[in-house]
Design a protein around this nucleic acid. Structure first.
Lengths: 149, 149
DNA sequence: CTCCGAGTGGGGAAAAGTGGGGAATGTGGG
DNA sequence: CCCACATTCCCCACTTTTCCCCACTCGGAG
């Protein structure tokens, strides 16, 4: 099971390639086979799943009801943005332009490790997201971690 | 289970390395495998968890709902600041610059053992924190220890 | 006094990040 | 049908950072 963590500032070269930070690369399981699925994230960012983690997600949405309109909408939206990416020999992935455009990414990115997935953000949008949180880290922590036994 | 205790004054060299006090090192369980996770603490300090203690924390946040925006914010904030650190052959950990900057750490640090984690503070900030507590140790003790069975 | 463990400092090899050239593939127009 | 152009991918090269190892100092125990 992957457990990505950390925040990294990386550049996007003019071919739309983004290097995968070495510390994240070490947490990718061999079953992922150097293959990643990039898709639209929550908030204005991209989610990157290693193949093996994506398979779990796919299994989950496979069990959604095809007769439920809301489920259909969710599955369509998720999958229409999803695309396979192979690492090149320098451990970089090449992101399609429409996904870069969706996330407002130009030359610089913030890369986050978030347990089973990796997130890619425009640094300014990320900054804004973090600054616009209604509560502070400490107060949220108190609420989130309280029921811990 | 770890049970760190004590307060230590240590220096940070110009490569951002901090030695782990010998007394704390003796309390690290072998399962930690010389690996530590450094992250942002509450208040302006850093938390250092041995691998095995971190795993418990990670297990807790893994069960948070991915569809709850507040949970997403918390997990992102916690993980974005987290990074793995291996002890070098001199039992030191190398702290990334952004974490040092967050905690306002320059050349000197206070290291605290706090049960399952280790805290690293800028000595001045720690002093200020201690001096600005509204209640005294004795009155807080009364409130904290009262309901103990 | 000597030895040993603990804390501190720095040099050099290896890895990681970044950028770009050029072949292979694919698409549309002449 | 062939050619021009764009796009993709593979490889090579340069720079910076990281980390691994060795050396020195200090203080306490024997």
């Amino acid at each position: 099971m992957s457990s990505f963590k950390g925040r990294f500032s990386y550049s996007v070269d003019n071919k739309g390639r983004i290097a995968l930070p070495a510390k994240l690369r070490k947490n990718v399981s061999p079953e992922a086979n150097e293959t990643f699925i990039v898709t639209r994230g929550f908030e204005q960012c991209l989610f990157v799943y290693p193949q093996d983690e994506w398979n779990k997600l796919e299994e989950a949405i496979r069990h959604l009801s095809p007769s439920n309109p809301q489920h259909r909408f969710f599955v369509r939206t998720l999958l229409q943005w999803s695309t396979d990416c192979q690492l090149d020999s320098q451990a970089r992935i090449s992101i399609p332009h429409d996904l870069l455009k969706f996330a407002g990414i130009e030359n610089e990115v913030q890369i986050l490790g978030v347990l089973e997935r990796i997130e890619i953000w425009n640094p300014n949008i990320y900054e804004e997201y973090m600054n616009n949180q209604p509560a502070t880290y400490e107060t949220v922590a108190e609420a989130v971690l309280k029921p811990q036994e």
